[in-house]
Computed example of a mutant assay.
Amino acid sequence: MKKQTSMLAVLPVLFGFFVMGFCDIVGISSDYAREAFGWSHTMAGFVPSMVFIWFLFFSIPVGIKMNAWGRKNTVMLSMAVTLVGMLIPLLKTDWACLVGYALLGIGNTILQVSLNPLLNNVVTDQKLLTSSLTAGQVVKAVSSFCGPFIMLFAVNVLGGGDKDNWYLAFPVLGAITLVSALWLYFTPIPHEKREDSGVTMGKVWGLLSDRTILLLFLGIFFVVGIDVATNFISSKVMIARFGWDTSDAGVAPQVYFICRTVGAFLGVFFMTKISEMKYFRINILAAIAAILVLAFYEDATVDLICVGGIGFFCSCIFSIIYSMAVQRMPEKANLISGLMITAVAGGGAVTPLIGAATDAAGITAGVCVLLICAFYLTFCAYGVKSTR
């Protein structure tokens, strides 16, 4: 296939990353849901699980089916599932919101498996793959940053200031999803070369027999764990330690996402100057320092700076790891994508542990769960050799 780079084709693909960022609304929305339905921290910790657990079950099957469906068609399917999911919470019950979260997760799973490879269809120079993926992460981070604003808009404007109307944020996300789907649908994108359709689940999981792929797979698991967990716990730190109101505590995930956005944006340029692995190592060590201070130093300003620091220093790690995995086996890009995105389930595995640790031993214990993820990423940073 002869690829053509066109800004008109790149833009709707990059905007798809904005829809991808919707899954991060689980952090601030779990606070509203906990108050509306009287949930414990442990129960609230399962809200991200309802979104991210589906990556474990659907990523590889979608990666296999994408060979037959095509990348663009698979992205369109993800948009449709997401749109339906954003309408169900209008039923205004706890189970309806949980179903909405689940469909958001299923749609996001399909989107992450298909949208990353779709960039290959519109980017000519493969040396720019990491930068292109990081640019997509910038767009995703902007979306994540907008999440608390969308929640406040739903409560204060659409809901008349009643916190019980927080669920109105979902149809707003649905409307944005519809715009993204229509833009992509009417944009011509070159078709990719189809890979072997005789691939089985066993063969995909068999890719983990490659030590490098295994280490990178676990790297995705833990970096997404840090991402979702920091989003989840940041507002709860401000509520538990300093007695902030739920609306005021929403500034914590906003600080996290704006710093992650800045970090991803700057990372696009920094990685043209230094190697991706060196950048990985510097940032993960800095992130560990920020987590340690957040865990044991109780000052509102310092804690917010640490939350932002975690977002900044971890902002490019996902794209670095994902890019290294694809470059390891470029001839199996669809399958590698499905396998790597399966590891995004780490976002749903870490938050219940944080909720349980918080209920059992306090918010500091919950923050310490982040260190486990960061320690593995340090091992990964020094244990994997760059394929470049």
Rank of each mutant, 00 (worst) to 15 (best):
V268P: 13
P117C: 02
N67C: 08
D245H: 10
L83A: 14
E276N: 15
A181M: 15
V123F: 04
V19Y: 05
V344G: 09
C314E: 08
P61N: 06
S337W: 00
F55V: 00
Y32V: 00
A96E: 15
V204N: 08
I28M: 04
A141L: 01
V384F: 13
V251T: 15
L152V: 13
L98V: 12
I288S: 12
D94K: 11
W39C: 02
M238P: 04
R71W: 03
D94T: 13
A175W: 03
L158M: 09
G225K: 06
T42Q: 12
A264M: 05
H41P: 02
F170R: 01
L77E: 09
S40K: 10
W69L: 14
C97R: 05
F313D: 08
T230I: 06
S144C: 03
K92L: 10
I320E: 09
Q137I: 07
W54C: 01
T5H: 13
K236C: 03
M7R: 13
A381E: 10
W54D: 00
F186H: 08
K278G: 12
G21V: 11
A141V: 03
L173G: 08
R34I: 04
L216T: 04
I372H: 06
F17D: 08
P61W: 03
G161D: 06
L371N: 09
V237G: 05
I291N: 11
P171L: 08
R34C: 03
L14I: 10
W95M: 15
P171H: 08
